[in-house]
Amino acid sequence: MSETAVSTVEAPQPGRYTVPGPPPRPRSQLVGTGFAIAAVSMAVAGALGHYMARRHLLDDPGHDWLAGQSVPNPQLVYALITLLVSVVTAHWAHWASRRGERGHTWVGMAITLVMGFAFFNMVMYSLNRMEIELGAGEWENLAFAVTGLSLAILIVGMFYLGLMTLRSLGGSVGRDRSTPLGSAVFFWDFAVLAWAATWYVVYVVK
């Protein structure tokens, strides 16, 4: 910082200083995304906690709780693996963006988004096979709500990734300008984790 920046006046005279200018720290979007993740993770935790508390009230959760539903495990596992791979490609895109390699950035983001769509395709197929009827029972309602919440978070994550990809297409790449994309990737990591938790609780432990 230059010497002029720390110059002083002769005596304390309040009221002579103007409202300040641009913030000196560039990572406000990353910090804000962290707080958003905290809020959404607590929402998922609250929903899953409620789900588990209701299940805990039943004496025979395996029978009464699912009421004859069968879960297509292979498809849901493939869907989860697809999401996990998309985390790798998202980080590849961010890594490339920080190095200023635009081609890699865009290819990485495109693959990530395609995998996101593929995930939704697989999950919707699985849920259709299960023929969950909303309102048919307590498990159906809770499973629908918790699953829907996690899917909504993934949709927000894909939207966020898409927006930040457009920004990188507009030239926001490089070490100092990749924070927005890094924030979106951070949120995507969390969205995948939230789905993994939901999948384990609702479709594995049931």
Partner: peptide, 23 residues
């Protein structure tokens, strides 16, 4: 952020159950 986030998840469950059978 961390405490009110919980009620969001609860409201999703309550809304769905209230609208579909109230199990």
């Amino acid at each position: 952020v961390v405490s009110l986030g919980v009620v969001l998840g609860q409201l999703v469950l309550l809304y769905i159950d209230h609208g579909y059978g109230r199990h």
